[in-house]
Write a protein that binds this DNA or RNA. Sequence first.
DNA 1: ACTCTACATGAGAATAATTCTCATGTGCAA
DNA 2: TTGCACATGAGAATTATTCTCATGTAGAGT
Lengths: 141, 141
Amino acid sequence: MESEELRNVGLKVTTPRLKILSLLENAKAKHMTAETIYRQLSEGGEVIGLATVYRALAQFEAAGLITRHQFEGGQTVFELERGPHHDHIVCARCGRVEEFYDKVIEDRQREIAEKLGFTLSDHALTLYGECSNGTCTAKNG
Amino acid sequence: MESEELRNVGLKVTTPRLKILSLLENAKAKHMTAETIYRQLSEGGEVIGLATVYRALAQFEAAGLITRHQFEGGQTVFELERGPHHDHIVCARCGRVEEFYDKVIEDRQREIAEKLGFTLSDHALTLYGECSNGTCTAKNG
DNA sequence: ACTCTACATGAGAATAATTCTCATGTGCAA
DNA sequence: TTGCACATGAGAATTATTCTCATGTAGAGT
Ligand SMILES: [Zn+2]
Ligand SMILES: [Zn+2]
Ligand SMILES: [Zn+2]
Ligand SMILES: [Zn+2]
């Protein structure tokens, strides 16, 4: 249950936090902006402040429940941290986001950091391109 | 000469543009924010608007003269596009930025994009970590 | 060199995303 | 239950960036 998750990371179980977590869990889009989360909850009849959404997301991130991504051009998006780590590829035309995990790249990153005298703690990798004409849902061909 | 560079990409040769290019060329820091460029030029006695700096940087980027990076937490930084492509590793404590190029990672990215049905056009890779105690110049231990 | 025009500029207003402030509300340990 | 540390909503404030607009100027054509 979501209450568990909150308790486990030392956060009080409150209605706004539960609503946000469960929206992230159930929404059609896996990667959502703060604004979108706010809007969808508001439309669903919740009374919630945008500041509360931002606050909760920051806390969830600090607690490791969610991750934050900054795709170029776009707003910051958040996604539930479930399953193994992955990186992203974004279609520059239609905005579609696909996920991937590549062990070779992950390992190489660690080696590179080491070679340069760094202790690796995190990384951000995003590929940009255009998805095939068949799948691309761009507004204007 | 910098005038050449501007002409080559179809931009008029103007004083602000020359000053910005030459600052990027000569400044101690290789990765600079728009604000820093603006401040350093102003301190050097130039009369230049911040909007002009942003405009010029956007044009330089579109023309391929510079690249833009968004390191997490920090402001957008720009750097002259000289020499081969590289990615970055940033120290979370002192902010030091090192550059690296790794053929294995670059090749893998292309393969991954292909496998997912994308035509790769760009990518952003930044590693985060802490540099060794010897080199780290963090404010507070 | 002179002129004309499209493009560039500086200053400040405007926007967008995010964070802060503060008066009020509430989870939960005791 | 009660108390209080923490959470919340609303709106103000901040930050980074872009826009507006009146004026200036690079450089093509004379
Ligand atoms: Zn990864
Ligand atoms: Zn993802
Ligand atoms: Zn690269
Ligand atoms: Zn660099």
